[in-house]
Design a protein around this nucleic acid. Structure first.
Lengths: 214, 214
DNA sequence: CAGGACGACTACAAAAACTATAGCATGGCA
DNA sequence: TGCCATGCTATAGTTTTTGTAGTCGTCCTG
């Protein structure tokens, strides 16, 4: 079940509540109190609660009451909060289709300047020893800002590969592996699509302990 | 100010409360409700609150009231919850003295089997390209379970270094770098102290975004 | 002995969360 | 048209938690 569970349409009021929740989490990093949020939106507590329950049954969040007096547990699912770990992107599928998502990495969103947009599990040895198989590489969905950066790229309809990307004259690019056993290839920009720029990596036990399953 | 701020002695009841908090966080990963905790300890809410305020003034935790009806913000400081990132351990100081702690990595404690006990910022090229300078290496304070594992070791009074540790006959050990430009040295076990076994690493933006300052 | 800390309690006030019930509007359907 | 389900809102009353204020006894110390 790779597709996110929130596919059902939202009524206008539910949409408002949901957007408000996302916004509050972006701003404060935490979930608001029900009463506070209700006041802020100009509706009654009960109304808001009903909307939250509707959002829960539609799969947009989890809303677990803990009894009178205690704040309820209110959580956005990993799809909305974490950055996706993409397994292998097959030929042709650009962007990160919601399929092929293996897991999510939470808690890496806060630092604005160095944000990462998605993660990739490395499979080959073309960047060894710098980057090993099974490392989890973090990528930002940007154009590289200068020549020589490590990027996740695809040539034609092939799979995604991780290489140094050198810019050559006449719109040509060089895909240069770190491992000298692999060939450096030169392609024209029209054949090349750049999925992301390398931002960092996780290796070993850290990787596994940070992942939250899909 | 590298020393942890909680140096003042605790009275018996305060100690009980503090231990209970640590235990609760280990088990559940979250902080308890005041009322619930008070019931569980067989004391009244007000008493517990007084102890928490005392712990706050002594620097063992932060306890921020949010007004009537709302659960107060209750947090253990990084010293108690995260794993320490040790800068450079100078000659002779074994263990992780509370000095030399640069920052803490949170949220990596939960996975029991693959736990890490401390982290080290890499400074040399002896394990390049596998491990780069400025990488943050996670280590478990254990004896290596087999020959050939990467370990953080010290020879005599030298600084900590990261090397493959091979076990040779007659109590000899071989410290083998990954980078062939560096020499492999052989020492006797009596000259060698093993600080930790390699568990994984962080590189790049992830590293910076996970750190919480000391 | 006075003063202060420590640990505990009672009593009351304010806020949040839960429950139950009901009032409208809209749209589908027999 | 009448009926019913659904979505959205509101009122009223109850339980629980949290916060504030004040009291009481013990123990240690100057």
């Amino acid at each position: 079940m790779a597709t996110p569970s929130n596919t059902q349409p939202l009524s206008p009021a539910q949409e408002r509540v949901y957007q408000r929740l996302l916004e509050h989490r972006r701003n404060t990093g935490e979930m608001p109190d029900l009463s506070e949020l209700a006041r802020g939106m100009g509706v009654h507590y009960v109304t808001l609660k009903q909307h939250l329950e509707a959002l829960q049954t539609k799969g947009y969040l989890t809303f677990e009451s803990r009894g009178r007096g205690r704040s309820p547990r209110l959580e956005l699912p990993a799809e909305a909060t974490g950055i996706p770990l993409v397994g292998d992107i097959p030929a042709g599928s650009l962007g990160i289709a919601s399929a092929h998502v293996e897991a999510y990495l939470p808690n890496l969103a806060a630092s604005g300047a160095l944000r990462s947009d998605f993660a990739l599990r490395v499979s080959g040895y073309s960047m060894a020893d710098l980057i090993q198989p099974d490392d989890i590489v973090l990528l930002a969905a940007l154009r590289p800002s200068r020549s020589g950066q490590i990027c996740a790229v695809r040539v034609g309809e092939d799979e995604v590969t991780l290489k140094y990307l050198d810019s050559l004259p006449k719109g040509q690019y060089q895909l240069r592996p770190h491992n000298p056993d692999y060939p450096t290839v030169t392609v024209h920009g029209s054949e090349l699509s750049i999925d992301g720029v390398y931002r960092g990596l996780l290796r070993g036990s850290v990787a596994e302990s940070l992942l939250l399953p899909n």
